[in-house]
Every structure is written in structure tokens, then in C-alpha cells.
Amino acid sequence: MSEAATAIGAGATAAGLAPAISIRGVTQRFGAVGAAQGVLALDDISLDIAPGEFVCLLGPSGCGKSTLLNIIGGLFKPTSGEVTVAGKRVDGAPRPDEIAFVFQESTLFPWYTIIENFRIALKFQGVPKSERDDLAMDALKAVGMGGFARHYPTQLSVGMRQRVNMARGICVRTNILLMDEPFAALDEQSRMVLGEDLSTLLAKTGKTIVFVTHSLAEAVFLSDRIVVMTARPGRVKTIVNVNERHPRAPDFMLEPRFGEMRNELFALLRDEIRRAMALQRDADGGGA
């Protein structure tokens, strides 16, 4: 992957540095080979991600973006191929010291208050008890949610919850953050504002991010590199570079090149989306 060497992440010079995440020939098959219900989800994916880089995985529904993310995070083991994080092979086992996940906002445990939700994450992280509350409060204040530590998630709006959820992922001090469509449940406007906040927050931390999304604008606004994937089986179709420094301001969205890049992405994706839909239709037709 020569692109990896040329991509410049926020605050990190990729050239010459060992990749933070290295994906080599990852293939994922669900069900047995040749089985009627068997599905080839990912086909021979290889990708290097530099430290401090923000990479988006973009592709039609069902192309295996989330699967790839889960494999990087060690939530399960690929059928073949390997992922290396910080020089150590991820072998289907989570690495909470290196990698944090941010899922949709409903990941917050509804039976715990916001601060308790943070405490659990920090406890698993091995943070001493005396430091947990301070770290949590710092993170909450950073996203403007300091006043809601003792609330339960259901007492907050969806946007507020996702703010908190993001802060939880960021406050555990991992170098890598994997985000699986974190804003999917949000309306367009909240998405944009949260995306902006995320860009600001991450510029300070210098974390390496892999972000799965459906939203073209989100991908362009946030990423250093956008990995466009094909319909199933998921392959890397092409990689688009976004040369814009972090933190990014909303003005970036008004620039002509923002629109051009989005259109370019859509042109790349259109055929894949149609193929994905046809696959879906066939599957439904076959099942009926």
C-alpha cells in the first residue's frame, strides 16, 4: 500500500514510522465454503494506517466495513490474514490497552449513571480507582457534559448521549479509537455538530482513528484518508486522500473541493450501492 506512506495524519508524520495498524490479506467468510448460506464478507483486504491518522471505511450496506473494524479490534478472528497493532498481532482477542471502541450511543449501559459508565470503562483499563472520577469528569467537561455525570443515559437526548459515549471512548487512554457508525442514530444537524467536536477533540489527542460510516459528507469532513469498499465481497476499491489540517471548521464544508470530493466519492460508490442492492434483492427473493 503505497498510499499509506504518503498520507499525512494530524500531527503525525507517517513517512518512516511503523504503521499503527497493519492489515494483511484479511479474508472473512461466514458459513462454510460453498455452503448455500455461506457469505464471503471480506476478500483479501490489505491496508496500513499510520499513527495519528484518521481513516474512514466507506461502502454500501453489507460490504463488511463493521466486520473489518471488529477484526481490527479483536472482537473476532478473521478466516485468514492477520492484523497487527503496535507491532503485536491481534488474534481475535481485544486489546483494551491499545484499542477503544465507540459504537452507537445506545452502547451506554442504561442501568448505570453516566459517571458509572465511565468508571467501568476505566476500571477495565486498569486505571486506579482514585483517578477514575477525575479522568471521567475531565472527559465530560471536554464535551460540555460536565453537569450530567449523575444522570442516567435515558434522561439525556440522543445527541447528548452520543457526546458522552464519544467522550467515554476518548477518555480511556488508548492510542487507537475504532468508531462504528457512531452518529448513525443522530439527525443530520447533530451529526455535523458532533463531527466538528470530534475533529477538535481528536486533534488534541493525536489518536489513530478508524471510522465506519455511510455518510459521504461525514467521511470527507473527518478523514485524512477514505477507504472506499466494494459491495460484497468487500474489497478495497480505491483510497481517497483529504488534504486538510485538523481540527476542521465547518467552513471546510463550504469549500468547492469539499463538494467535489463528495461527488467523486458518490460516483465511486454508486455502482457498488446498486450491486449491493441487487445482492440484497436476490437474497430476499431466494429466501421467499
Binding site: 471488529n70 479490534g73 479483536g74 472482537l75 481485544p94 486489546r95 483494551p96 490497552d97 484499542i99 477503544a100 471502541f101 459504537f103 452507537q104 445506545s106 452502547t107 449501559f109 442501568w111 448505570y112 467501568i120 470503562a121 477495565f124 483499563q125 480511556v172 475504532l178
Partner: peptide, 28 residues
């Protein structure tokens, strides 16, 4: 919620943590 399961796993929680922090309170 499968996300709660994934959350515990990704944070490095063991099976006992899943029981204590997810299954038990979810069942209450």
C-alpha cells in the same frame, strides 16, 4: 443489546463482567 455485549468485550471485560454489568442488570 448486542452492543452491550460488544462493549464489554472490547473494553476487555471477562465473562463474569458480562454477567455482572450487563446480563444481571438487564434482567432485573
Amino acid at each position: 443489546n448486542p452492543l452491550h455485549r460488544s462493549a464489554i468485550a472490547s473494553m476487555g471485560g471477562a465473562r463474569a463482567d458480562l454477567l455482572r454489568h450487563v446480563i444481571a442488570p438487564n434482567m432485573a
